[in-house]
Write a protein that binds this DNA or RNA. Structure first.
Lengths: 292, 292
DNA sequence: TTTTATTTTTGTCCTAGACAAATGTTGACA
DNA sequence: TGTCAACATTTGTCTAGGACAAAAATAAAA
């Protein structure tokens, strides 16, 4: 479809997530995108420019910087997305299933895995694995956003119903679970909740994006022993460290702070913050807490 | 006493849905809001200004024009909304329960309601009601963010497990459910999914924030008959309308588009878009679709 | 190697002007 | 009295560059 449709700057912001100010300053500095203008001098972006913007976005997520990317053309960009890609031929099984767009099949597949392996193994092995594969496929542009959404929703739904069906006697500690502002991904937290539930721990899950002062208030109101934060790779490292030190200062020392996810930096974590670097560590850390 | 917290212009845009350009031009023209400035001359909006902005927004949704509203003070504005009648003195029961910060109690309360009333009544009456009460309490600062989060999470969890436990024979139509970029609230969509499930409709739920072009691709991939969008009051009206017209152009006419939630404007919906103005309308609209 | 200081890059804010799209008002005419 | 066109006002969003802090990269020191 060789449609000559053009998009105004607001539409481009909606579709790509790149702000208007940023689009204008990119044009000024890097000479891309260079939209044509309508009769009133307003920018009109072409379909092609939109596509290139999406490529740029994906590469920026991988750590590349806009200044370098803008100079390249589309073919160079898509080449960059696929270099060092060993697994380009054999997609993971989960990707193939997602590509069929058959929700019932997907549900059945995940459910079977869960039943077969049990919740603990399902979370620590299968899910952890699939998540990285899907993150990878998405970065390479081999998986559409909506396909990733479909996966997340299905997993979340599965975990939630598993957790709520799990009757258990609640024992200490009391755990409060959430993510920091700007972090929308709740899947990691939910996986954490599932693993904790297997250890008779009942979480207060606040979902995503709770402001720091609110987290403080929530921990105190719920008299939580442990605050558990999850944070994905894209989360700004600096912001994370600042929030963590602020939280550490606000909360009494008796409250432990655990932080997990791909976004946890290797070094320089403030004192009094415990990094959970793999889901298998969770049970161990919990045991350590119980042994005081 | 967090009265001394201020918000930068980006935070105000996120919270109220009023764009940065609009905020600046309102200040220039009407003298409201008049934020103080930080050391670098950047705007800092007070809590009060935020509250007044939210009132203004609600009244604008009712058809009032900004020029008139800005001149009025808060008491005059809330008088126009005639909201003070119910909730100012006697908090709703749900608010009281939330304030106790006892998750098990909250869960029990909601669960009892669900069992007692059945899913349909629970969603269309109790939940719809509680949601507005909580939205109200939040706007007035009578409910902390973390308390609202705790409520949402609990309800979402409850609905999800109800839906997943509901075995039913799937019949047409095929419905795809999501929210537009910038709209994070998935509760409305989930309520919708629950009601549809009661009518043997199985939804493909993509969760929150699917870009317009991705929605188009998803509808086609899943061969959905109906696209169902939900959108809360704070969502920018203009952005909604533009996204809707874009979607209407992208999708074939045979695909119906339904949009529900507090954010649906009273007037000027593009042709080919069906507004669902109350949850009770959903079953009726569905019936109408089946009768072709 | 790790830590600290310096430079470059990059996103977001600023002002103030312009103008079209939406809405309100007026007046002519049936 | 109601309808429709013409005109007036209101309102949101665009424009251009300039400015500057936060983030990232690089260099220097421990």
């Amino acid at each position: 479809m060789e449609k000559n449709t053009y998009f105004n700057i607001a539409a481009v912001e909606r579709d790509t997530g790149v702000g208007k100010d940023t689009l204008r300053v990119w044009e000024r500095r890097y000479g891309f995108p260079t939209p044509i203008r309508d009769v009133h001098g307003e920018r009109l972006y072409s379909q092609m420019e939109l596509e290139k913007l999406r490529l740029v976005q994906r590469l920026m997520n991988q750590g590349h910087r806009p200044g370098k990317l803008m100079a390249l053309d589309m073919s160079a960009l898509s080449l960059m997305l696929n270099v060092q890609d060993v697994s380009i031929e054999n997609d993971a099984e989960i990707i193939a299933i997602l590509k069929k767009h058959h929700t019932a099949d997907l549900h059945r597949y995940l459910n079977n895995l869960l039943i077969e392996q049990g919740l603990a193994r399902f979370v620590t092995e299968s899910l952890a694995n699939m998540n990285t594969q899907i993150g990878d496929a998405w970065m390479r542009g081999r998986l559409a956003i909506f396909e990733e959404h479909a996966y997340s929703e299905q997993v979340i739904s599965l975990l939630r119903s598993a957790i709520s069906q799990m009757g258990f006697e609640v024992v200490a500690p009391s755990v409060l679970l959430t993510t920091l502002p700007g972090e929308e991904h709740t899947l990691g937290g939910l996986m954490c909740e599932a693993l904790l539930a297997l250890n008779q721990v009942s979480c207060v899950n606040l979902g995503a994006q709770t402001p720091v002062v609110e987290i403080n208030a929530a921990v105190r109101a719920h008299q939580a022993d442990i605050l558990c934060l999850s944070c994905s790779a894209a989360y700004p490292k600096n912001q994370l460290l600042q929030s963590l030190t602020e939280l550490r200062n606000l909360l009494p020392e008796s409250v432990h702070i655990w932080v997990g996810g791909q976004g946890v930096p290797r070094t320089k974590l403030p004192v009094g913050i415990k990094a959970i670097r793999a889901f298998t560590e969770l049970a161990i850390t919990l045991e350590a807490w119980r042994d005081k």
